[in-house]
Design a protein around this nucleic acid. Sequence first.
DNA 1: TATGAATGAGGTTTCATTCAT
DNA 2: CATGAATGAAACCTCATTCAT
Lengths: 217, 217, 217, 217
Amino acid sequence: MPPSLKDKLDATRRAHILSAAAEAFAERGFHATTIKEIAHRAGVADGTIYNTFDDKEALLLSIFDQLQHEMPAPALPSDLREVDLRELLRLFLGAALSGLDAHEFRLFRVVTSEILVNPELGERYRAELLAPMLDGAASLLRAWSAAHATTLPHLDLTLRAVAALVLGLAMQRALGDEALAESWSQLPDTVAEMLACGIGGADPQPGDASTASAPNP
Amino acid sequence: MPPSLKDKLDATRRAHILSAAAEAFAERGFHATTIKEIAHRAGVADGTIYNTFDDKEALLLSIFDQLQHEMPAPALPSDLREVDLRELLRLFLGAALSGLDAHEFRLFRVVTSEILVNPELGERYRAELLAPMLDGAASLLRAWSAAHATTLPHLDLTLRAVAALVLGLAMQRALGDEALAESWSQLPDTVAEMLACGIGGADPQPGDASTASAPNP
Amino acid sequence: MPPSLKDKLDATRRAHILSAAAEAFAERGFHATTIKEIAHRAGVADGTIYNTFDDKEALLLSIFDQLQHEMPAPALPSDLREVDLRELLRLFLGAALSGLDAHEFRLFRVVTSEILVNPELGERYRAELLAPMLDGAASLLRAWSAAHATTLPHLDLTLRAVAALVLGLAMQRALGDEALAESWSQLPDTVAEMLACGIGGADPQPGDASTASAPNP
Amino acid sequence: MPPSLKDKLDATRRAHILSAAAEAFAERGFHATTIKEIAHRAGVADGTIYNTFDDKEALLLSIFDQLQHEMPAPALPSDLREVDLRELLRLFLGAALSGLDAHEFRLFRVVTSEILVNPELGERYRAELLAPMLDGAASLLRAWSAAHATTLPHLDLTLRAVAALVLGLAMQRALGDEALAESWSQLPDTVAEMLACGIGGADPQPGDASTASAPNP
DNA sequence: TATGAATGAGGTTTCATTCAT
DNA sequence: CATGAATGAAACCTCATTCAT
């Protein structure tokens, strides 16, 4: 059965209110934002919000869902043998960091802030975002290892370190680090190099034979 | 002039209340914790808290101050030529991660949560914790580079990546990652290796100073 | 555009709450009256009051506004040559004193009490009540002087003295002077005579032998 | 038994605290002034005040007492035949108005404000200040009437009108009327003339009793 | 007697949520 | 289904007063 008109109206209303809520939360934080303010931004009455959402907290959870679904997946080649480790990391980091960038970190800030303090949201964050990401990355790395007939030591910690990099960079930027903001788009490349080759390691990318790469001879 | 009795009593009372507040905040978050609850935990009346602290927010700021002052500095050798990059990173990460560990991440969680949403606290965090840490690390790395007659590319980004690792690992652990909790004490070593030599890089430990450089002899 | 239903409901609610507040203030004074008590008297919840009024102080200011708008103006003949000074004063005092009487001095007491101590209200009192009254009286007396081809010395002080009489009589009555309460309606006449003719001065109203005066037969 | 040292110390302490309270009340009003502030101004601890005064309200009552005792009595000639009505009024008004002036109306404001709203204080004001003043003035006027072999009509209302003038002028000045402030010292004379001779009446001074009367022959 | 920290009742105000219209 | 006024619990904070030192 295709979505009825009612369904479509519902979805539109939902999205409309959610967007108003997101804006408000982003500007003033979750606790400082009142339902009245969200309703005003959305151009509806206070009560109307409660027809669509159970709670003020439900708004935050929905925003969280949205964030989660909008997270882009890295665009990987079908044959992992085509990419070296550095490239793999670059693609992975690129997807993660650009996903955050899209929202200008405003929502990241609000959601992260609540995650740390609201057990329910915290658990969902771990179960629905962090764990799948780590799992995905884990199988990706394993597949890559297999394709390249090599082994990566400390796989678990490595994964967490990569996730930590993403989280930590996002936090620093969310806190107003301007240097990061400016070089955000170059980060995947630079950080991938650093991770793949070690700090101070390897000459930069172009025509570099020494690195882990030695891509497609 | 030595601290008078009054000073000592003041300090004790302060610490007592602050500790109650920290506990309460850690358990329930800043916003969900009421003054009444803190007072109850501290075994004093509501009003008593206001004899020592201006505000509920002042409690949080004081906890922040405490965290800041308790942060250990890395124990470095006087001659940087004695350590290779990996060891340097290990010492640095060790200090940072153990500093966080001491508080079981409860306060880290509360403070970080507010940092993201409270502009005043956010700015202080950046100015008083993050920036000094980055600056300290920057001069450390520069001194090390000089001592080893080498150059580290992307110094700024490298620093931020290291800070990101610390922050990001702390966040993951604060969110309940048990694997991280268990291997927390080994992290400095493993992550330092990873950073110095690259993922999948270099053989473990063996007192290798040349490290990541010359990866494929 | 005629007042909408909403406007009318708003006005009714406003008046209802204001009346409860006025009663409560009148009985217990501004500071001793709690919002809870006003709400109880009005038969609404505490919060409801804040939908209509910003503040506890806003209630007082609104009562003040009401007092101000309800002040009656003296009913003067179109041709001032028709009245002598005594009659002019009588009409003026009559308007002022009956205006106060209407409220049984309960509100006068509360408002006056705060006026003396609350700079904002004090200033408004002076600018919106006292000054216009003095100005109005001043032009009235000037017009009367012109119409009667005479001059009144000390015009400013005279005006202030008349205002003082009104204020002072109101205060004494507000403080519970029963003699004043009983003879309130005769005050305009008697005081006008006193002012126009001097204490112990002049025969009663023209051609009237009956009055109390007839001093030294 | 002469006052012991203890009595003297007590009195000094009392006066000291009272003066601090008066200052504070005058600046900020009774309700806005805290015991802490009074104690600070007096250079003592909060608790010390309670060794001398029962209550915060007792401070106000004591200030009231002080005001009352400091009120100067008019300096009358022993033989009332020497003064005409105008001079009598001048002396009376002079005493009352200069008594108020001495305190710059600051205390008048605070005390009056509370009088209107605090039943106990209101009653004391009427019984201890207003009534004696009216009684004194009444017997004075009666004595004067007898001495001059004349009768004053409306004696009660006249008295209240005179008291009203004093109160009302004080209130206007307390509310910031600058014209009044400037001409304060001339008021007794001008107002006495006005009262004795009628508004617009009589030529200045010369002991003229015929006055304003006979305005329209 | 002076001190001033502790007390805790009580005040104002906010705001998520409900529900009659 | 939208509305938005009403609700009232609950929060933060103040401050007169007490009392151990």
